[in-house]
Structures are given as C-alpha cells and as structure tokens.
C-alpha cells in the first residue's frame, strides 16, 4: 500500500498550514479515508491528524445548535439536547454504520464520505469520479443502488450519508475554514451535482476544513425513515427525513429530504409544497407522497426506487405527523 507521512496538528491554523501541500489529506475518524487508502483510491503523501483539535464541541443556543466537525457520531447521537430538540439528527446517526464506526467517525468526515458506488470503490474499474474521463460503467451496468435524481452522462453515484439527509431537511449550514478565513455554506449549496466534473463533490477547496455544522432551531415534528437491504449496518436504498410544523391540525411548514436517490441529498420540494395549508391527515400525506418522485430519471435496475420513494415519504409523514 501507498506509504505516507503523518503529522499531528494541535491548532486549526497549523492544520491549515500543513494542508497547503496539495498531496495532503486530513484524517480524523479515518473510517472512510483508511478504507479508500487501502483500496488505493486515496493516495495522500501526508496524513494530517486533526482528531485532537478542539472542534468537537456541541454547543446548543436558543436559535440553533453548532455541532463541531470533530464531534463523534455517537456523541452527537447520544447528546441529550440533540435528542430532545433535533431528534432527526440522532435518528439519522443511529440509522447508520455500526457502534465501532459511530464511535470513531466524525460529523465533518461523515459529510465528506465518498460514494458507495461499487465501480468507484473497486479502485480499478473505469470511474469518472476516481479517474476523470475514464467513463461511467454504472450507467450501462449494475445500477440498482444508483441515483434517480441529479445524475449526468458522467456519473450517477448516490451520496451515502444519512446525516446529510437530515441536515438538508433542517436547512443546516456548513462552516468551512481555509487560509483566507471561514465562511458559512448552506447544505443545499455545499454539495455539487456531478455534471461533467463528478470528481468535485463539494465546494470545499484543497486545504479547506469543515469546522462545524450550524443547525437552526426547529419546532417541527421529525421522522427519519430508512429502507435498506438489512436491518442494521447498511446504507440506504431509500431514506427520507421529514420535519413538519403542524398548527391546529394544518401543515404550516414541511421539509422533506431523501437519501439513496440523489447524487446529493435531495430536497423534495414538490411534495413539500403539496402539504402546505393542508390538514395533516392520511389523505394529504398520500397526495404529497405522490409528488415525491416527480422528475425522477430511473436507470435500468433502479426504477423500483420511484415507487419506493413515494412510499417512504408517506411513511415518514405518517410517523412525523403522528408525533404529539
């Protein structure tokens, strides 16, 4: 395997300095990066260990919560204030990975995990994400797990994070730090569509670091429903995060995001719009769910996701709507 040097950063500024080298990579939980390195997909010359930076704080405020990028998934999922006020985040985190991985993996790393597309992960088959210009065998090949939204002629790989789906439904923002300072990017702008540059997945530039995720307060009732091929330790075939504000039985605000279906976490805006002003009942949920797959472009093996997404939306609305 490709050998690398190791440097332990003690301050964010030092980590950013070290990362001026284009062949450097940040490592924190390591749960994805070391898999990619072992598969020969990530080949950094320098691993910058950022796991000891003081960016692991979970800080609730009246108007929201700031979750440090280096907070471990398990710590965030177990945080009593996250569980009480942002249960969608806790549910999404607990729906993913294993105890071992949740204990090691970080919030920032989770958002930056690479796709589970088997062609990408193979390390040697053509893949425009891994070897730009080499082609996309998924489009004409095995594409059961691939995207029905946001694909391009160059890539149809889905984004694998459950957390990112919950954050998309909560209108969270990502705080990005670089040599020139820090900026806040809405999660909807953070991820890029593959277009003709599928190797670029986020707006994060070389040497930039996620420091935190900011999540606004929500009065909504939430549900995260994840459909997968086995009950635990498995990526989503389809998942839906719902956040509903219901006043006097009427839907005042609806936010729906889906995983397993898009090349990035996918907001279901037409289904959301169908709910606003409606009585929060089974008929309205059915009507909204029917809009969930509008615009889908299924491939040879994943057309089942079109109907599965509608049903998963209906289930998420029923669960969220049923919560007092």
């Amino acid at each position: 395997m490709h050998a690398f040097d190791y440097a332990r950063a003690t301050e964010p500024s030092q980590a950013l300095d070290l990362a001026r080298r284009p062949d450097a990579a940040f490592i924190a939980g390591g749960t994805d990066l070391l898999q990619l390195w072992k598969a020969g997909i990530a080949r950094p010359e320098l691993m910058i260990d950022i796991s000891r930076l003081a960016l692991d704080i979970v800080k609730p405020r009246d108007d929201g919560i700031a979750i440090g990028a280096l907070a471990r998934l398990s710590d965030v999922a177990d945080h009593p204030i996250v569980q009480a006020r942002w249960p969608l985040i806790a549910e999404a985190l607990n729906a993913g990975a294993s105890a071992q991985v949740r204990n090691a993996a970080t919030i920032g790393g989770n958002l930056l995990q690479r796709t589970r597309c088997a062609y990408f992960r193979s390390g040697d088959m053509p893949c425009n994400k891994r070897a730009p210009g080499s082609g996309c065998p998924a489009i004409g090949g095995e594409n059961r797990s691939h995207a029905i939204f946001g694909g391009s002629p160059h890539c149809v790989a889905t984004h694998a994070s459950d957390l990112a789906v919950a954050l998309a439904a909560l209108d969270a923002s990502v705080r990005v730090a670089g040599p020139a300072g820090s900026r806040l990017v809405g999660i909807g702008d953070f991820y890029l569509l593959p277009g003709d540059t599928p190797q670029r997945e986020t707006v994060l530039g070389q040497g930039q670091l996620i420091c935190a995720v900011d999540v606004p307060a929500t009065a909504g009732r939430a549900a995260y429903v994840k459909v997968r091929d086995r009950a635990s330790f498995e990526f989503a075939v389809v998942s839906v995060a719902a956040d509903l504000v219901i006043d006097d039985g009427i839907v005042a605000r609806a936010r729906l995001a889906a995983g397993g279906v898009g090349t990035r976490p996918w907001r279901l805006t037409e289904a959301e719009a169908a709910l606003i002003g409606e009585r929060a009942d089974a008929a309205a949920f059915d009507k909204a769910a029917a809009q969930a797959s509008n615009g889908a472009e299924p491939l040879a093996h994943n057309a089942f996701k079109v109907e599965l997404l509608r049903r998963t939306v209906r289930r998420a609305l029923q669960v969220a709507g049923g919560k007092a």
């Binding site: 190791y6 332990r8 490592i27 939980g29 390591g30 749960t31 070391l34 898999q35 072992k38 691993m47 260990d49 796991s51 471990r72 398990s74 294993s98 105890a99 071992q100 991985v101 204990n103 090691a104 330790f233």
Partner: peptide, 25 residues
Amino acid sequence: SGDCGACSIIVDDRLVCACLMLGAE
C-alpha cells in the same frame, strides 16, 4: 475495512476497529 469487527478494541472507553485507526493515533 471496518465491516466485520474482528479487530475491535476499546480506546479511551470507545469501541473502535483497530484496522481503521493508525498506530500513531
């Protein structure tokens, strides 16, 4: 690759996979 847990160890009271941790860490 972190899928099987045969290498599970406890580091500072956290269960982790030793195969996905660097010795230097």
